[in-house]
Design a protein around this nucleic acid. Structure first.
Lengths: 67, 67
DNA sequence: ACTTTATGTTATAAATATATAACATAACTC
DNA sequence: GAGTTATGTTATATATTTATAACATAAAGT
């Protein structure tokens, strides 16, 4: 399972799903799905999100403890 | 466009596409497609590949200079 | 109470990654 | 030169991400 800190960083940057979505060029629902762990993003999307927060991808997404 | 150093690291680790593919649980062709930039991987696959080489994802994949 | 804002949720469609199988080629070994 | 190994390549099928649209709810402001 993928653990993500999108919500944590999103709140830290004081933005809502809509704003983040627009910044990385996806839909609001897509951000929501990711935050709730509904599916694994593409590398491109993960990259764009991490870049918004100025952190490495591994800081936001974590597959530790997996299959 | 996505630039990748999969081949470079794969050779450094002295493995062929087949071996790397098996290590990360995909097909040989998938590794080949990635090396030739045919498509963007999922975060999971990018993560697994980077982990094989013990480097951060950004060391292997790079979207700098994009859209 | 009504309106707005943020988020959850669900169904379906579209796009894209990956699997699978098949064949090609070039390098190397015997 | 036949056989093996590594890789390229292409066509089709399957799986998964993402888009799109619609409706629900709860909180906050007026």
């Amino acid at each position: 399972m993928l653990k993500t800190r999108i919500r944590e960083y999103r709140l830290k940057f004081d933005m809502n799903q809509q704003t983040l979505a627009k910044l990385v060029g996806v839909r609001r629902e897509t951000i929501g799905h990711l935050e709730r762990g509904n599916y694994n993003p593409s590398l491109k999307l993960a990259w764009d999100i991490a870049k918004i927060f100025h952190v490495p991808i591994e800081e936001i997404f974590d597959y530790e403890g997996d299959e």
